[in-house]
Amino acid sequence: MSVQHQEFRGRVARLQSKHASFSQGATARVQSDGLIVIEPRKIRSSISGKVFVLIIVSFLLFKAFLMAALGFDSYDERVARLAEGSAVEQLGAVIMQSDPVSVWAAQQIGPILR
């Protein structure tokens, strides 16, 4: 392949990637010298850090509530039965295992439930 053809393919690849980035929309801004610059719109995640932390805390509180309501022995027995199931159930058992934060929260919630 000739050098000119390689350069042409490089320019085409840059134009295709630029076009793909503009497919999500664009914003225009005026620089201090009056030049109008059009840039691709930045994609923002719909889940912020605060929402992610809230989901994790809610899940841990849910586990703590289950531990307090069922009792620690019964909860561990149910998780052990879950670990004997299919791959999805085994994944659920790993997620639902007792952790120090949930155990502490269950100990705090337990007297309130009884």
Rank of each mutant, 00 (worst) to 15 (best):
A13R: 08
S98R: 15
R9Q: 13
V30T: 11
E7S: 11
R44Y: 07
I47Q: 12
R114K: 12
G71F: 14
W104Y: 06
E7L: 15
E89T: 15
V12Y: 07
S46A: 14
Q4D: 07
K50Q: 04
S46F: 07
L91K: 05
A68E: 09
Q31F: 05
G34K: 03
Q31G: 05
L54G: 07
I55Y: 03
F52T: 14
S46G: 08
A13Y: 11
S17N: 07
L82R: 02
A69V: 01
K63W: 00
S74D: 11
G34M: 03
A80V: 08
F22L: 14
Q108Y: 08
D99H: 12
K42W: 00
Q16S: 02
R41S: 05
L91F: 13
I109N: 05
S2I: 12
A20L: 10
F65A: 05
I43Q: 14
Q6Y: 06
P111Y: 15
R44K: 13
V88P: 00
A28M: 06
I56Y: 14
A28Y: 01
R29K: 13
D73I: 01
M67P: 05
V30P: 01
F65W: 12
R9Y: 08
I55E: 01
G49E: 03
E77V: 06
L66S: 05
G34F: 05
S21K: 12
L61T: 00
E7K: 06
S46T: 06
S98G: 09
K63M: 04
E7M: 11
L66E: 12
A69Y: 08
L15G: 10
F22C: 11
F22Q: 10
Q16I: 15
R9M: 13
S45V: 03
Q108F: 10
S98M: 08
F52P: 00
A28I: 08
G10L: 09
V30D: 06
A69S: 12
I38S: 06
V37Q: 09
S86P: 06
L15D: 09
R41M: 04
A68M: 11
L35E: 14
I36Y: 08
A87S: 13
A105N: 01
F52K: 14
S86W: 01
R78Q: 13
S46L: 12
I38E: 07
V88F: 08
S58N: 04
V37W: 04
H5W: 03
S46D: 09
E84Y: 02
G34L: 02
F22M: 11
T27W: 03
V103A: 11
V103W: 00
G49Y: 04
K42N: 09
S2C: 12
I36T: 10
E39F: 03
H5R: 07
L35M: 14
F59D: 04
D76Y: 01
V88H: 02
I38D: 04
S23I: 10
A13K: 15
